[in-house]
């Protein structure tokens, strides 16, 4: 079952990369989210999968009474999800703002920072 998940992670990553390489800003944004999900699943799967047993110690016990899911990757992923969401919102608003003020949603036409005909640096001190 691990290998099925591994293959699924590959699908997430492949689609994420493919969308990130498109020049449409919205598609890149979708790609970013999917890539993020793929990486979360990657960490999750790499920490081994355990069916249905949450890493919670039953009340009254000092130790879990049996094998539980690996808590460490879960802690890593939990914050990654929230930060990923914050990042996603930021990029979305950035894309929106760029569309408003540059009237461009294709990266080919967004050349404010690196203009096409940038002059040579001046030859002086």
């Amino acid at each position: 079952m691990d290998y099925v998940l591994a293959a699924l992670v590959g699908c997430f990553v492949a689609l994420g990369v493919y969308l990130l390489l498109s020049r449409s800003v919205i598609r890149m944004l979708l790609g970013m989210t999917i890539l993020g999900n793929g990486v979360n699943l990657l960490i999750f799967t790499a920490g081994r999968l355990t069916r249905e047993i949450a890493p919670i110690v039953p009340p009254g016990l000092e130790q879990p009474d049996g094998p539980i899911a690996n808590p460490l990757p879960q802690a890593l992923i939990l914050t990654a999800i929230v930060i990923g969401f914050a990042m996603f919102s930021f990029l979305l608003v950035l894309a929106f703002r760029a569309y408003q003020s540059l009237d461009a949603d294709n990266t080919d036409t967004m050349r404010v920072a690196e203009p096409v005909d940038e002059p040579n640096p001046p030859l002086s001190y």
Partner: peptide, 19 residues
């Protein structure tokens, strides 16, 4: 597409090796 496929397959293989 090729690049994306290679990345995806690479991640899958890596994960399988790890597993």
């Amino acid at each position: 597409g090729t690049l994306a496929l290679v990345c995806g397959v690479g991640v899958s293989l890596l994960l399988m090796v790890v597993l």
